[in-house]
Write a protein that binds this DNA or RNA. Structure first.
Length: 818
RNA sequence: GUCGGCGUGGCGGAAUGGCAGACGCGCCAGCCUUAGGAGCUGGUGCCCGAAAGGGCGUGGAGGUUCAAAUCCUCUCGCCGACACCA
């Protein structure tokens, strides 16, 4: 290589802007609604426009882009849209904190422009014509429309709810704004609990379907399905009425998942807020009970929920009758019973419930065992036994297994009218009111004559006023007339939780400019469901559960034909640097400008895919990035060295080396296609590196630059294209290929071509590796045994012993067991 | 506390019952070069050995299997979610 040929040098700064412009002009990622091709809906969770986009955040968008680009080349009509989750507290907080007093709208729009530019710099292609921004009136008009749909369907209602109230700001705070029981803006001010009328969505009506349909989501991460299952928290049990002693016709209804332990109930507990507390309490106990209830009410949610604190409670002095045995048991009040779950009252079975056990110990209440463990000592319990066992001390149910007893006792309760089977959920209705400016106004008015009146749909949107101030302080906003009677009325001044905005945006992408409805049903049915949904695991419950809920409501309303929105879900890991999640504000971010200006967006893209398993958090390293740059440069040289362009024609696979190269190319096509599809990008990059290495070895070994070589080069460029699209388009053009690479067909996998004629057969003797033999592929077991026994090493290991067993896995391993 | 996940070379990781360590980083030796944070060649799990070769090895201990990083049981460590839901 004395006199080097003049090389074309890879300069990403020149080619990246060039191709970004061309893609933009050609509308490469524009999705056609009327294409005859099969559709593929590739969606990434739309972000909050923080203005903080780094290469770390971009990782997830690169994943979506790689998939979109491959699916396009594979002949799919790909919908790959983008938008902005622009409403809500984060945007408002950021505007206040970092925007120097900017209006949230101004701040948001600036960040959207910035973010769009940065995404384009990374070479990520979206159908920008379909961009949605949740804070713009042409979007939130339909968010409001959907609220009205919920209202019509009886799924939106107003109710009193205890909320976090900041006495200084005179506003309700979101849970996220309460830090250690104090207001986030006034660290010295404790948040109060207030009962206020709030809007709720009845997601609990859908609890069963949300739970049962998780079974359809077999391509979701197991973890997310488990989390949603637990969040919904369905439990089966019974409601039982315990008559109150001395109060005819009055009873305490409890809920239990363990009706088999009914005979073990030695006392009862009411939540402090339970309506019967006051009436149960005898005069002697009144003062203490009132004091306790008062104290419990004052405590914040945070204090009350804080674990590892001793259970407290007071006796009411009242008694109730256990319906199964007529026993009179004392009724207590304690704050470990929650008024918001079940019936707000429990029967306490200290022998078989850890919490009741702890409480009974503390207040010296009786403990009666009614389930005998199948094994182990009986007698005095040192702790609650919560497992199954045999019924004891339970009258006619004695000697039954506890599982059978559950059914028998439920039957008994139902026959006697003392109780019934019941299902309860941990899931609560969704509180959507926010006393905040930056959200979609809830479109109702309060009329002294007509009560709550929805704003007529044709009057939507209820637009946010220009002035940035709590809506309740803007009379020009809330002073209005009743749509029904025309009289003076007051507008709702709360806005909606931002999770409402994101519960339907994936439908809006189907018809983003529709100005007569939230989405065109036909188009939504065409594109839905989302084939691949990619985003952070932090949304495992809220966003994903709410979106599933909305989808089911819209299905019931006949507006859409799918019951689940997202078929396949993927949670990508985060990019860290110096041990912390990369972000501009943390000062450890690598900006997209920096990257593009130095190693180039393509190197960054490949690196982000190569850096580690896509679902794991990964540590950014500049050294690792350099390795990828070298790979990219090597690929560039392989493809564009002058000799490879001036290829000779020749017979396909004329030489042994040529055949091997063809085989490697075919194998790589198979593996890359599969691994991109399964989002296993780190291994996909490794296979491409292997291919490049093989190609380089081929040339070094004197391989001809014939048609086999040309085909290898073309295939390498195509397979690499989704990862490094700028470099690959440029190579494609310089190779003299016609048309854009983005439009070129994806290479087809040829299994016959990929098959290895010779394989290395591993020979084990009694499970220990003794030799490796190169043999023809597809050997029969007899042939394999013969080949193995021909080996000196194998014979030595067998040491003259015969074979008692042979295990043969064709083309991989043969295990000879003496 | 409960549930879920993860523990593999100096490092990121690969292999989901069949050759442990693909691919890359780093490191070592050499080549090329005026130069190298460029390029090329070879090597690189650990231990014994001059070598041939042998032994050991996927947090730890057992087990299932012809065969285990992979499946099961227990255990240790780390991470995440939920957290009195009766």
């Amino acid at each position: 290589m004395g006199s080097r040929p003049r090389r074309s040098v890879y300069v990403p700064q020149e080619i990246e802007p060039k191709w970004q412009k061309i893609w933009d002009e050609h509308g490469v990622m524009k999705a056609s609604d009327s294409s005859p091709k099969p559709k593929y809906y590739d969606l990434v969770m739309y972000p909050y426009p923080s203005g903080d986009l780094t290469v770390g955040h971009a990782r997830n968008y690169v994943m979506g882009d790689v998939l979109a680009r491959m699916k396009r080349m594979q002949g799919f009509e790909v919908l790959h849209p983008f938008g902005w989750d622009a409403f809500g507290l984060p945007a408002e907080n950021a505007a206040m904190k970092r925007g120097g007093g900017l209006h949230p709208r101004t701040w948001t729009r600036e960040n959207v422009a910035k973010g769009t530019r940065e995404l384009k710099m990374m070479g990520i292609l979206y159908d920008w014509d379909r961009e949605v921004t949740s804070c713009e009136p042409d979007y939130y008009r339909w968010t409001q429309w959907l609220f009205l749909l919920m209202l019509e369907r009886g799924l939106a209602y107003r109710a009193m709810a205890p909320v976090n109230w900041c006495p200084v700001d005179k506003t309700v705070l979101a849970n996220e704004q309460v830090i250690n029981g104090r207001c986030w803006r006034h660290p010295d001010v404790e948040v109060e609990k207030r009962d206020l009328e709030q809007w709720f969505l009845k997601i609990t009506d859908y609890a069963d379907r949300l739970l049962d349909d998780l079974a359809l989501l077999d391509k979701w991460p197991h973890k997310v399905r488990v989390m949603q299952t637990n969040w919904i928290g369905r439990s089966m049990g019974a409601e039982v009425d315990f008559p109150v002693a001395g109060m005819a016709g009055e009873s305490i209804r409890i809920y239990t998942t363990r009706p088999d332990t009914l005979f073990g109930a030695t006392f009862m507990v009411l939540a402090p807020e339970h309506p019967l507390v006051e009436r149960m309490t005898t005069d002697k106990h009144r003062a203490r009970v009132r004091e306790y209830v008062e104290k419990a009410r004052k405590e914040t949610e945070i204090e009350r929920m804080s674990m590892e604190r001793d259970k407290t409670g007071v006796a009411t002095g009242g008694f109730a009758i256990n319906p199964v045995n007529g026993e009179k048991i004392p009724v207590w009040v304690a704050d470990y019973v929650l008024v918001t779950y079940g019936t707000g009252a429990i029967m306490a079975v200290p022998a078989h419930d850890e919490r009741d056990f702890e409480f009974a110990r503390r207040y010296d209440l009786p403990i009666r065992q009614v389930i005998a463990p199948p094994t182990g000592p009986r007698g005095v319990l040192r702790e609650a036994y919560v497992g199954p066992g045999v019924m004891v001390n339970s009258g006619e149910f004695n000697r039954l297994g506890s599982a059978a007893a559950v059914e028998r006792i439920c039957d008994w309760l139902e026959a006697k009218g003392a109780g019934k089977r019941a299902v309860k959920y941990r899931l609560r209705d969704w509180l959507i009111s926010r006393q905040r400016y930056w959200g979609a106004p809830i479109p109702v008015v309060y009329c002294p004559t007509d009560g709550i009146v929805p704003v007529p749909k044709e009057q939507l949107p209820v637009e946010l006023p220009e002035e940035y101030k709590p809506l309740a302080e803007i009379p020009s906003f809330w002073r209005t007339t009743c749509p029904k009677c025309g009289g003076e009325a007051r507008r709702e001044t709360d806005t909606m939780d931002t999770f409402i905005d994101s519960s339907w945006y994936f439908l809006r992408y189907a018809s983003p400019h529709d100005d007569s409805e939230p989405f065109d049903s036909e188009l939504a049915n065409h594109w839905m469901p989302v084939d691949q949904y990619t985003g952070g695991v932090e949304h495992a419950i809220l966003h994903l559960l709410y979106s599933r809920f909305f989808t089911k409501v819209l299905y019931d309303a006949g507006l859409i034909s799918v019951i689940e929105p997202f078929m396949r879900l993927f949670n990508q890991g985060m990019v860290k640097r110096f041990g912390q999640v990369m972000s501009k504000s943390a000062g450890n971010g690598v900006s997209i400008d920096e990257l593009a200006g130095a190693q180039g967006a393509d190197a960054g893209r490949i690196y982000e895919m190569f850096i580690g398993p896509p679902e794991e958090d990964v540590e950014w390293s500049d050294a690792g990035l350099n390795g990828v740059v070298k790979f990219l440069q090597r690929a560039w040289r392989l493809v564009l060295e002058p000799e490879s362009i001036a290829a000779e024609s020749g017979e396909l696979g004329a030489t042994v080396d040529g055949q091997a190269l063809r085989r490697k190319v075919a194998q790589t096509v198979g593996k890359i296609t599969e691994h991109y599809d399964e989002l296993r990008f780190n291994t996909a990059v490794a296979f491409l590196m292997e291919l490049a290495n093989t190609m380089q070895d081929y040339l070094r070994g004197g391989g001809a630059r014939d048609r086999v070589w040309e085909e290898a080069v073309r295939t390498l460029v195509k397979l690499l294209n989704p990862l490094a699209p700028h470099a690959c388009e440029e190579m494609w053009e310089r190779m003299g290929e016609k048309g854009m690479l983005a439009d070129a067909p994806w290479p087809a996998f040829d299994a016959a071509l990929a098959a290895e004629p010779k394989v290395v057969l591993v020979v084990q003797v009694a499970g220990k590796l003794r030799d490796r033999l190169e043999v023809d592929a597809g050997l029969s077991q007899d042939e394999a045994v013969k080949a193995a026994l021909a080996s000196e090493k194998v014979r030595a290991a067998l040491n003259g012993r015969g074979l008692s067993k042979v295990v043969y896995v064709p083309d991989r391993v043969i295990n000879l067991v003496p």
